[in-house]
Nucleic acid binder design. Sequence first.
DNA 1: CATAGTAAACGTCAAAAAGACGCTTTATTT
DNA 2: AAATAAAGCGTCTTTTTGACGTTTACTATG
Lengths: 245, 245
Amino acid sequence: MEIKKILNLSVDCVVFGYDTDTKSLNVLLIKRYLETKSGDEVLVDDYVLTGYHVYENETLDDSASRVLEELTGLTNIYKKQFKAFGDPNRLSGPKDLIWIKNEDFNLRTVTIAYYFLLKTEEVDLKKNISKAKWFSINELPELGFDHEQIILEAYEDLKIKCLQDPIIFELLPDKFTINDVQDAYQSILGIEIDNRNFRRKLINKKYIVSLDEKQVGVSKKPAQLYMFSKDIYDKMFQKNYLISI
Amino acid sequence: MEIKKILNLSVDCVVFGYDTDTKSLNVLLIKRYLETKSGDEVLVDDYVLTGYHVYENETLDDSASRVLEELTGLTNIYKKQFKAFGDPNRLSGPKDLIWIKNEDFNLRTVTIAYYFLLKTEEVDLKKNISKAKWFSINELPELGFDHEQIILEAYEDLKIKCLQDPIIFELLPDKFTINDVQDAYQSILGIEIDNRNFRRKLINKKYIVSLDEKQVGVSKKPAQLYMFSKDIYDKMFQKNYLISI
DNA sequence: CATAGTAAACGTCAAAAAGACGCTTTATTT
DNA sequence: AAATAAAGCGTCTTTTTGACGTTTACTATG
């Protein structure tokens, strides 16, 4: 009995990494390989998201976590399933080329897209065999398939989510300064914030905990370090709905 | 060549309808039919969401819209794709029964779940062949498959979305009173709101437009009618991001 | 036709949050 | 020791929110 897939299911991962030094929100992308029908390998000058088939006995969430772990070695990273992409022709490409990792290139492929939030520094790219590279969200390279659209939709979702939940702290180191937080908001949202008002607002949050530590190795006045207490946050907001339409 | 699907793709639609009279948020569900292997039809005492296979040349969005139109006759209804459900065993059920509409019952089925927002009164259930019925979100019947989970996740998403965007007006008639809006929020969010403060706040929004009309046929002082101006709203909020973490 | 009843609609005051902006402090570099 | 530059504090005003008392306008009823 010949088995023929008529549908292919994958996950794609938009890995967001924030870099505190450059104040840049980055996306982790991999160089795309193609091979011709004759089997020669061809390097195509574009990038794609990491993604892979969903295994037979795997949940979608597990699949996304697996893909991330294979690429970065990281587990327990903030993850959000944000949209499914499944246009009938979404993977159409050069007809004589077949994506090396995907023998089902000509099938309809539905992908469940996730995004992850982590610190750029957390990922050790050198130990990776793959041609992974960070790109600023503002300077994306040529992207294969519909991956630019996927990234931009992830970014939109992230921006909105940023304003509702304290996910900014997923992107920042455990110990951060008030200005780190402000910079992250400014960079991600593309806005300017008054430092003095922002400071006051943030310091007054009970879940922003002042540490007995200051920055070291800075060439100006070292700033106070803080941490985010998820415990306190969760206790404060066990369902607080505020109408703000 | 035998063709065997190893994966089944469907959309499921959570149709939310708000009833201004009963102040209840309802979900449209259909009685589930099963048939045994011998071909007898059996009525199972539970309900399911409307959903169907995604056709070969159809986008996911189109598929959801088609399913809604087949059930309700309605088009151009607020629609949101909110999550994909694809656990390997998510459609497991009684082994000797096969869902009448789904010959792929034993396959892994990934469903892209949408919710729709409309007015309960808008749907004429009588002209429907299907056994569709409205249920209050607070009094759901026994549900088949994982559809209770899907509904509850849709509801959670709706509650959050409600607080960000003016989607409440998708659930209300074109002409409504201030109290209608308050009732809808209270019912959907399960909260109490002070009428005088809510009133002030809502009336001050430029996109809440007072009409030259009042309620008719009420046995008390008839209330002023208002409408929601999407035009004005859109002009006001062409990206206003407010940090409120 | 007056009156009672009820929901609609308006108003006030205080507390809290947001916005704008000036000034001081402190560690480091020169 | 002075200069520098970012960190950090303070003040004043405006806006928003929250709590709650009062008035108005329509229908129903006697």
